[in-house]
């Protein structure tokens, strides 16, 4: 019988703790597959965040550091400067990266720190029970914006890719959505491109993945993927925001 799918060796055998329909599992698999495909087994350090992916250190089959909320880019900097030839990636959620860790991500990007950041944007604080995130959509309900997010009270969602791509440091910045097979394939391509940039020592790369949180959104998994496609992509358009190889051509 032909093998049509095989779990990548860059994931451990520990079962994910994520909720049904959550796309963290897909994101983990894509990152791990890309690490395997670029052939860096035994030469990777991951940085796990605080948030739903806090236990990522149980899943990625690499040396990994669990760090303080929002500080993944700073810790990744310390790792990368110690081991410049090792692939270093940080895996962060929206509260982690775009709220409490805004300074760290902006400055790691500005330094052109040669690391790859996987940014999971599901527009909500999942781990703590569904509070408003810096990327929560206008009108979107959360436990701390129960009537829906409003601009006068809560301000506007932060567009991380657009913001960071104005800097000179980043080599590659892209946004993809984990909402259907075609978009998942595009996401994988973007992640791989980010890692390749790092291998070529071209500088900072960030891949934002629009993700679902059926539990805290109060939706079924199918409704949640539809929400990503119909609502999130309007606020957070997909595409490549920066690619220094294409710019120089």
């Amino acid at each position: 019988m032909a093998t049509v799918f095989k779990k990548t060796k860059m994931l451990t055998d520990v079962p994910f703790h994520y909720c049904p329909g959550c796309t963290h599992g897909i994101a983990h698999r894509l990152v791990a597959e890309c690490l395997e495909e670029i052939g860096c087994e035994g030469n990777v350090v991951g940085i796990a965040p605080v948030g739903c992916a806090v236990f990522a250190y149980n899943y990625f089959n690499v040396d990994i550091q669990e760090v303080a909320h929002g500080r993944a880019p700073a810790a990744a900097t310390g790792v990368k400067r110690t081991h410049p030839d090792t692939i270093v990636f940080a895996y962060q959620g929206d509260g982690d990266l775009a709220s409490i860790g805004t300074a760290e991500i902006v400055h790691a990007a500005a330094r052109g720190e040669n690391i790859t950041v996987i940014f999971i944007n599901n527009a909500i604080y999942g781990m703590t029970g569904g509070q408003m995130a810096p990327t929560t959509l206008i009108g979107q309900k959360s436990t701390t914006s129960q009537q829906g997010r409003t601009v006068p009270l809560n301000g506007n969602p932060i567009k991380v890719c657009e913001m960071l791509s104005t800097l000179d440091g980043p080599a590659y910045i892209a946004r993809a959505a984990l909402c259907d097979p075609a978009n998942v394939a595009k996401a994988k391509k973007a992640i791989k491109r980010g890692f390749e940039m790092q291998m070529q020592k071209k500088g900072f790369s960030l891949i934002e993945l629009l993700s679902t949180c059926p539990t805290n959104w109060g939706m079924t998994p199918v409704q949640a993927t539809e929400y990503v496609k119909e609502n999130m992509t309007k606020q957070f358009p997909l595409g490549v925001f920066k690619d220094i190889d294409k710019e120089s051509k």
Partner: peptide
């Protein structure tokens, strides 16, 4: 060796965390 002027005290100590965790005398 490596010297970085960090964006904040918070970032600096977390860079120390990363480097120390990776084996450097930081």
């Amino acid at each position: 060796g490596c010297f970085i002027q960090a964006e904040s005290e918070v970032a600096a100590i977390n860079m120390v965390y990363g480097a120390a965790g990776s084996g450097a005398r930081a």
